[in-house]
């Protein structure tokens, strides 16, 4: 069975280590916060200006002056801080943020990522994504392996306008965990019940498969 969006988030949460400052993108990445082990200390950064972001507020306790990068109302945890946008991107560009998790429309086997624009169709903008991918050392992409038409989103080359070049290190899809290595996708783990053949079929880019590929457990 392919992973649900929650399971993709759950698998990515295992990459989060004690003491990490983490920036979560919109969509599946936001769900990662729900699955981080509670015996480790992690702080979430939202690029609109908060470090130490907490869960959504209880009804009636929402504050228009306290939102995340998706413009959702949030809370601030003990030890949180607020800051301006320039300082927020000093944290990001200055590589003080340990892990960046974001979504993608396409990833190429050289680590290029496209997630901000479909020419003539979807024009929303890049927000902080270009700053994040250009500077972060540790980027994990959360995405579906194929689009709705069944076409691969893990490509030899991105067809959409790029967000960043040679920057993605790891990808967690509904079918697999993969690393970018030697201009290829290296298969690391399979979703439960998904075969190596299934993943090969769903991957347009070059796929390295070596030895036994373990199945993820939940």
């Amino acid at each position: 069975m392919a992973l649900s969006k929650e399971q993709i988030a759950q698998r990515i949460a295992r990459e989060v280590r004690d003491g990490y400052y983490v920036n979560l993108g919109i969509g599946i990445p936001t769900l990662v916060a729900n699955f981080v082990r509670d015996d480790i200390e992690v702080e979430f950064q939202s690029e609109n200006g908060v470090l130490g972001m907490g869960p959504f507020p209880f009804e009636g306790e929402e504050d228009p002056d306290l939102i995340n990068a998706g413009k959702q109302t949030i809370t601030a945890l003990k030890g949180a801080s607020f800051f301006d946008s320039a300082m927020s991107f000093s944290m990001i560009r200055g590589q003080h943020v340990d892990l960046t998790i974001l979504g993608a429309m396409e990833v190429a086997q050289n680590g290029d990522i496209a997630n901000w624009k479909i020419p003539g169709k979807m024009v929303k903008g890049m927000g902080g994504a270009m700053d994040l991918v250009a500077s972060a050392d540790n980027i994990i992409v959360a995405m579906m392996h194929t689009n709705k038409a069944g076409q691969s989103k893990l490509l030899k080359e991105c067809s959409l306008p790029l967000t960043g070049v040679n920057c993605v290190k790891k990808i967690v899809t509904n079918l697999a965990v993969l690393a970018i290595e030697n201009n290829s996708f290296r298969l690391l783990e399979r979703a439960p019940g998904v075969s190596v053949e299934d993943i090969k079929t769903a991957t347009e880019g070059d796929l390295i498969v070596e030895g036994d590929i373990p199945e993820m457990t939940f």
Binding site: S85, F89, M130, A134
Partner: peptide, 27 residues
Amino acid sequence: PQGTLAQRCRAAQSGIPAFYTPAGYGT
């Protein structure tokens, strides 16, 4: 890019005419 937008404001505020950033390279 959002960080570039913030920094272009900050540069204007600070009397810095231009700056280099990695954001957007190759795009």
